[in-house]
Amino acid sequence: MRAIIGKKIGMTQVFLEQGTIVPVTVIEAGPCCVVQVKTLERDGYEALKLGFIEVQKERRVNKPQRGVFAKAGVKPYKVLREFKIAGKKVGEFVTVDDFKAGDKVKVSGISKGKGFQGVMKRHNYKGGPGSHGSMFNRAPGSIGQSSFPSRVFKNKGLPGHMGCERVTVSNLSVVGVKSEQNLILVEGAVPGPTGNIVEIKAE
């Protein structure tokens, strides 16, 4: 398994040789410093803690965190994420070179917040007719039965807050990698707005 932390730059398009246009998301990924190595003996599982985006002013990091970075002998980082990968030591870097065009990856991030939304947008309910005297336009309709069971079942889709949650999009293919600019081009859309921190994983 390979993994890296990245920042969503935005979407654009690339041409393939035959002139086919592929929509791509540009992600600035890495270089990510290994801040901590979790081992089976010490922590019960194996993982690497990666840091991404160096902190410019050290006073912005709180004192306990500063100690963690100082002990590891690395610079302080804004974003820390743990991945179940192995094979690197503390202070080494994970770069985009681990990925190549044609790889299938999973991209996770916090999706765009949509606020309080109704059932049509939030749960893809069909709603009612828009006109001809219909007064059942975007309402959810019946939400259950009668005196039995006298309650609404759990997980019934109802209006509420939507978005701003962790979303993973799997099976995206890597279109290109630019190691000198630390960029990965991934086909299709990835969660969240421009500037969003995303995690990229490949098997």
Binding site: I9, G10, T12, Q13, V14, F15, L183, L185
Partner: peptide
């Protein structure tokens, strides 16, 4: 502008 640079060689 970094977005433009990303597909620079396509222009």
């Amino acid at each position: 502008m970094i977005l433009m640079n990303a597909v620079e060689e396509q222009y």
